[in-house]
């Protein structure tokens, strides 16, 4: 029996619609803010479950995922249906979406889970829908970053947390063996390190490496125990809310 939505749930949902994605600690304070009774400890998971129960018939959900950049947990409002109606979405033109798909191809293919702007520009010439000029490509990439589908750092583009959370199933279906989950957290791994042992080859997210190998003097692969040759990253700050 689904609990009914209250005004607090609706406020939270509207903000999720506008923001698209929100970090865990911010979600907690937002829920407190949305609730009329400030002292009420609305349990985060319970609060979101109420909303999800109502969103489910419309194939919408608020889903959780980890950021490949800072290792923190995020909540994203995502669509889960692929229909003739969902294809009427008008945020991006057909050729812009094709460019986005090609960017995903490049990211999946890469060692470090990123695509350079040069490589993306090269794709623009061979688009099947409609060609794009350099200026247009830059404009679309900016919008994709603004809309939180891609992240950009020094001319390299990676899949954002929002993108991975929403597109996870799509990516697994379309790319299949070309993608691998992280050995530690089981989510798809793009910005990651890989075991050099050819018979092992497990992938681990950079934040997951940082957590697992923290203060290990002699890092070993958790699967095959071979020496882990990569530089162990350090998480900027261990979030107390974990």
């Amino acid at each position: 029996m689904a609990r009914p939505m209250t005004e607090s749930h609706r406020r939270f949902l509207q903000i999720m619609m506008t923001s698209g994605i929100i970090e865990l600690s911010k979600a907690k304070s937002l829920i407190r803010h949305c609730c009329d009774d400030q002292s009420a400890h609305a349990q985060l998971d319970e609060f979101i479950d109420v909303i999800n129960a109502q969103l489910q018939p419309m194939f919408m959900q608020i889903r959780k995922g980890m950021s490949e950049d800072d290792g923190r947990q995020y909540y994203a409002l995502v669509n889960m249906a692929e229909t003739d109606v969902t294809r009427m979405s008008s945020d991006y033109a057909d050729n812009e979406l094709e460019l986005f798909r090609k960017t995903m191809d490049l990211i999946v293919d890469s060692e470090n889970g990123s695509a350079s702007s040069t490589d993306i520009l090269n794709c623009a010439d061979s688009l099947q829908t409609k060609k794009m000029k350099k200026k247009e490509v830059e404009h679309v990439l900016n919008r994709l970053v603004q809309d939180k589908w891609l992240n950009e750092k020094q001319g390299d583009y990676t899949m954002s947390t929002r993108c991975i959370i929403e597109m996870e199933q799509y990516i697994r279906n379309v790319y299949q063996d070309l993608v691998k989950p992280c050995y530690m957290c089981h989510s798809l791994a793009f910005q990651c390190q890989m075991c050099e042992n050819p018979e092992c080859g497990i992938k681990v997210h950079l934040p997951c490496v940082a957590r697992y190998f923290k203060s290990h003097i002699d890092p070993q692969c958790p699967a095959c125990k071979e020496y882990w040759p990569h530089e162990i990253p350090v998480l900027r700050s261990e979030s107390a809310s974990q």
Partner: peptide, 21 residues
Amino acid sequence: APSFHFMLGSFLAEPPAPRQR
């Protein structure tokens, strides 16, 4: 009203172009 934006389902899924692995 806020509007709902998403990426999944906004285009037809196509298998990626085959390439050298």
